[in-house]
Design a protein around this nucleic acid. Structure first.
Lengths: 137, 137
DNA sequence: CCTGCTTTCTTGAATCAGTCAAGATTGTGT
DNA sequence: ACACAATCTTGACTGATTCAAGAAAGCAGG
């Protein structure tokens, strides 16, 4: 898999890739923790570097909702988006209602050469929804 | 305007609000600079705080594309999105092709109570487009 | 207009994710 | 197995943002 994109196969990279598959939408610290279960002495630097290389190679994708740390996921190549909970910050995948390339055509592209449309849905997850907080006034 | 949302009217807040109107999509440093043309001795802290309060009150909106600093804009309440240049980081507004509430309905909301759909278009602005960089090999 | 209370601002330090750099180590092709 | 080049380790550093304590200013009532 790493060879497929012309990268050297090193222990840290394999572990990072595995960790991203095992923990979708995890932030960097979580990934470092997961990697250290395989290789206890990896440096954070190696993880940061691996993530950058894997992202550049297109094997993982980096997402960073406003106000959050960087997160990574291994689902790449398809067209999917994210829901983010405003309260707990949890992220989940959603496919877009419109189909394959939702909203990819802006009404006015302002002269930009657009290559991607990223959609982020903001709201509250089921755990954080104010079901039992009616009106306190 | 500030009074309209129940906030005290202070010099820094007025200046920050004015600066955000004058510099759409400006990052915090730019805003601090603009504010200091009115009030040379404002502390960065006052600006950060004003921005947070104004954002909470809904008078300005905070946006933060992946890998960028926080940026602010005064266009709120309408449904518009952004194009971001991958090269220079410039941000511009676009209205969505679909109309008023584009993509607001995810195909599967995963149990979330969604209140906003944010669309970010990624690409290259006209100034950064590789028009004169054909193929150098 | 003046007083007093509360919010907001100033000053200065601290935090924390992420980056930079130099030298040691490891992967790969021959 | 060897040599070269890429990658990792260690450790320091950056820079945006936040925290905290005391001073100043806005607002409501007299």
């Amino acid at each position: 898999m790493l060879r497929g994109v012309g990268l050297r196969v090193t222990r840290p990279r394999v572990a990072v890739l595995t960790a991203v598959y095992a923990h979708p939408h995890a932030d960097t610290d979580t990934i470092i923790g997961a990697v250290r279960e395989d290789i206890p002495e990896v440096s954070h630097q190696a993880v940061y570097d691996s993530l950058r290389v894997l992202t550049a190679a297109g094997l993982v994708r980096r997402i960073q909702p406003s106000g959050s740390l960087a997160r990574y996921e291994a689902r790449v190549g398809d067209n999917h988006h994210h829901v983010v909970c405003r309260s707990c910050g949890m992220v989940e995948d959603v496919d877009c209602a419109v189909g394959e390339a939702p909203c990819l055509i802006a009404s006015d592209d302002r002269g930009y050469t657009i290559d991607e449309a990223e959609v982020t849905y903001w709201g509250l997850c089921s755990g954080c929804s104010p079901l039992e907080v009616p009106d306190h006034t």
